[in-house]
């Protein structure tokens, strides 16, 4: 869903990151690069490798957020990791997003918990809210939902809030 961005000159750090990411070749696809924000896509088989590259070569040291978005029209769920950097020089202002699209019918991808321990609770939340399985996560138990929740994962578009009609 990346929209066309207005053409603007990228700062030095962003340019260097985009250049470094392009060394991964076909494994990453650039969604957008603008000042302070870069987003890339990777296939689920490559997510772990790309995240290691982001950690070791690009010096992003923690995960700030994980967003799961349901796109029922494409029958896909998009998982976006937002990485931040504390110790990378000039990188604190930059958020690097790594997104991966998985088919709704087989919503699973490898967990990044070994690469980024900070994803632990974010992945647990995404798992219960969208029904995505993170392979290798040691504890994908329910986190925020009530223990007697007896419905489909609520952040799927197919779940409607009680009392709300279609299109409301």
């Amino acid at each position: 869903m990346s929209a066309t961005q207005p053409k603007m000159e990228l700062p030095r750090e962003e340019k260097a990151l985009v250049a470094a990411l392009s060394s991964l070749g076909e494994k990453v696809k650039l969604a957008f690069a603008k000042p302070n924000r870069i987003k890339i896509f990777a296939e689920r088989n490559d997510v772990v490798e790309v995240s290691r590259f982001i950690r070791d070569n690009l010096h992003f040291d923690h995960c700030a957020n994980v967003t799961g978005t349901d796109f029922p029209k494409d029958k896909q769920i998009e998982i976006t990791y937002h990485f931040g950097s504390i110790d990378g020089e000039g990188l604190r202002r930059i958020i690097l997003s790594l997104a991966c699209k998985v088919p709704s019918a087989d919503a699973r991808l490898p967990s990044l918990i070994n690469e980024f321990p900070s994803v632990e609770l974010h992945e647990r939340e995404t798992a219960e809210m969208l029904g995505v399985v993170f392979d290798g996560h040691p504890n994908l138990k329910r986190l925020l939902l009530p223990e007697d929740w007896n419905d489909i994962p609520p952040m799927l578009k197919a779940y409607r809030l009680p009392g709300r009609l279609e299109g409301e």
């Binding site: 700030a64 976006t80 937002h82």
Partner: peptide, 29 residues
């Protein structure tokens, strides 16, 4: 249509919103 990730320093630390829009009047996510 598109997405935005914005953050501020709240009292307890960095607070961020990731909004994905499909071009409508409400956020898509």
């Amino acid at each position: 249509p598109g997405e935005a990730y914005a953050r501020v320093e709240a009292s307890r630390g960095a607070m961020a919103f990731h909004i994905i829009s499909d071009g409508g009047t409400k956020p898509y996510r």
